[in-house]
Design a protein around this nucleic acid. Structure first.
Lengths: 176, 176
DNA sequence: TCCAGTAATTAACCTGGGTTAAGACAGACA
DNA sequence: TGTCTGTCTTAACCCAGGTTAATTACTGGA
């Protein structure tokens, strides 16, 4: 059984509308989600009520809170649909059990974890070494298709700055 | 065979001195390192020659560049000893092969990947949602033993600020 | 077509951190 | 004992981005 078949066999198909939440920060559950269709936003709300965007997801991405997966902790962020969305939900612990007897699943699971960790390693580098403007340029390069479908506000919060600051950066870039 | 025995059996013991590099940014290799004894610093050098610190490692931590592990890419950072250090080097691809036939190794490998990814998820959150001062307070809480053994400069570069800024933050915190 | 609500821009002012440079301090060593 | 070197602190100045608020533009109903 390969990974796609595993998803079809054990996963639950979900159809959600723009604005629906897949899960909320603080909730429980070790589920992961494969995005069949749509655009989603993963975001944190910090203690003082401010929102920051962890990432945007689109077709064929896989997302889930690792702190929730690991030892069944709480979701560290919320996941909301920015468009009508189709997802397949599957359980990490089920996949892990299955991986013990199935090399294909085991390989895909390892790849999945590696790529999740690498994605975060890259983002860590960007925050540590790049300016807000450089991060914005990189975002335009990497996710050009998303730009038109996401509000400036969300892009700013993804970059770790305010919408006002992003507007200034855009203006600065036009002039040059 | 459990994980510690796996390390002893297949790993290579290394003894390094303060200042020695374990590997350098841009180099190849899919090795991971288990820290038996000592303190190390993982750091990036960005294009303009500036250094930023990715993390500090001490006893029983495991470290390696995930981009290097994944598909045998290049190390995305350098690793240097801040004290005399004992390491055990082991190959990720060997562990992965072994995991296919050994559930204990497979479990430990999955845990390892999950904890690496979670560590980065946490740090991503800190950069996105916390101020430099809050990140410093958190560092003092989490790694109090390291504080006395690491220069202020390295702590500042870990927090993503300059040594001058960290000195100001410390003063500000004393006054309050 | 008009209205209401949201998103984006712009301006004015404030603040945290960067930059540069000068001094203080401490350990290493001749 | 004095000097050298590296680390930390402090000060002065600058700038990117935060904050608040007013203005404009856009969009989706009714």
């Amino acid at each position: 059984m390969d990974f796609e078949n595993y998803l079809k066999a054990t996963g639950t198909a979900l159809k959600l509308s723009r604005g629906d939440h897949v899960f909320r920060q603080g909730g429980k559950g070790d589920a992961l989600y494969w995005v069949k269709q749509g655009i989603l936003k993963a975001y944190y709300v910090s203690e003082d009520g401010r929102e920051q965007v962890e990432s945007f997801l689109s077709t064929s991405n896989i997302i889930g809170s690792l702190t929730a997966v690991y030892a069944g902790g709480q979701n560290s962020f919320s996941l909301v649909c920015l468009e009508d969305t189709q997802l397949v939900r599957f359980s990490f612990s089920d996949m892990r059990s299955l991986a013990a007897d199935n090399r294909l699943i085991a390989d895909r699971m390892t790849d999945l974890l590696l790529s999740l960790a690498m994605k975060k390693e890259r983002r860590e580098y960007e925050f540590l070494c790049l300016s807000a403007e450089e991060r914005y340029r990189l975002f335009l390069e990497r996710q050009p298709k998303l730009v038109s479908k996401i509000t400036q506000q969300d892009i700013a919060l993804y970059l770790g700055i305010t919408p006002v600051a992003l507007s200034r950066i855009k203006k600065r870039m036009q002039v040059e």
